[in-house]
């Protein structure tokens, strides 16, 4: 178990999590459905978590993994609030298409 990671270069983790992160970014830019945008953001956070854990493991420092907890805590709290807002909004507009939300423009 000790040499668990030695086979895998850190670069691989960086590339993987960056790819996931960028897919998340793309999702935010690409989609109009608020829920999917929301999920893309979750994907971004998760990609970050992966990188944090990887760094943590390669540094031999538990702080990174502890930070992941806080990220998760934040993600959970964000979801709670975000979905609450979404539900409130849906009650009024019956839509979650973010482009419908353009009453504020102009």
């Amino acid at each position: 178990m000790q040499q668990n990671i030695h086979g895998i270069p850190l670069d691989w983790f960086i590339i993987l999590s960056t790819t996931l992160f960028c897919i998340g970014v793309m999702g935010v830019l690409f989609r109009r459905n608020a829920i999917i945008i929301f999920m893309s953001i979750e994907l971004m956070l998760n990609a970050t978590n992966l990188l944090l854990v990887a760094f943590s493991a390669y540094h031999g420092d538990a702080a990174g993994q502890v930070f992941v907890f806080f990220t998760m805590a934040v993600a959970a709290a964000e979801i709670a609030v975000g979905l609450a807002i979404l539900v409130v909004m849906y009650r009024n507009t019956k839509s979650v298409d973010i482009d419908v939300l353009n009453r504020l423009k102009g």
């Binding site: 970014v25 929301f38 953001i41 973010i98």
Partner: peptide, 24 residues
């Protein structure tokens, strides 16, 4: 108020998006 809801939601989406970058 729909405007308020939308404001909150927009703020939320953008804020979370920013959080992603910050975190990375």
């Amino acid at each position: 108020n729909i405007l308020s809801n939308e404001a909150g939601f927009k703020y939320f989406l953008m804020g979370s998006f920013a959080t992603g970058f910050l975190l990375f």
